[in-house]
Design a binder for these strands. Structure first.
Lengths: 108, 108
DNA sequence: AGCATACTTAAGTAACCACTTAAGTATCAT
DNA sequence: ATGATACTTAAGTGGTTACTTAAGTATGCT
């Protein structure tokens, strides 16, 4: 392991689990309480809350507790951070490829 | 854990480690042999090869061995798969937000 | 007050992950 | 053929992750 980074670690780690991606997908349709978020899954509530903790720790999700109900929603800015990291590297490589391609065509 | 998916699991898992992201970053600048890829890191060669295995297993990197040298390069298509998954969810949520915003302004 | 709801805390476990060292194999160079 | 290079295989270890069950706390309802 090297540098901790601005928490790309935590974001990608959070995205690496299918349960958490489904939870994120659910939150795409609007905010949800912990119970609502847990409903589709067959696992225990504490397990769901632990997943939620990972999502929140990564910054991808924000939650707020009012009374006894905790409500969760997506944080699009954090999503963009992860997305951008991939995008930058991908396009750099694609540019290299097309430059090589052009070169090969020229020397052809 | 639920569905395995088309291996978004493996891609995001691969991206979750800073060493692997650095390796990917290196490969952005062009193909590299295993030794070249390992050079910047202080860890053992087998450790680097294990990381490389994760990257390759996720489809983000492709390698080919010629003689005794294994050469590695980025697979931009796989990168795009991961990128797109995030992007779709992020934009859906952003649309929801701006729709809500517009609604609030109208009723204001 | 008494009971249900909505989490929360704690503790334990089995599987996985990121390394390590040591030893091995396949090529290439002389 | 000999030695160096470029990985490869195997086995082990300590830390983390994804759960579990059991019990606890805080809030809202009647």
């Amino acid at each position: 392991m090297l540098s901790p980074g601005p928490s790309l670690d935590l974001m990608f780690q959070a995205l690496a689990d299918p349960t958490r991606r489904l939870m994120l997908e659910r939150l795409t349709k609007g905010p949800a309480t912990v119970s609502q978020l847990a409903a589709p899954f067959s696992m225990s509530l504490p397990a769901v809350v632990q997943h939620l903790g990972v999502l929140e720790g990564s910054g991808l999700v924000r939650t707020e507790k009012i009374g006894r109900v905790r409500t969760c929603h997506i944080e699009p800015i954090a999503m963009r951070t992860a997305e951008d990291w991939i995008g930058e590297r991908r396009t750099t490589w694609e540019k290299r490829l097309s430059a090589l391609d052009a070169y090969l065509r020229r020397t052809e």
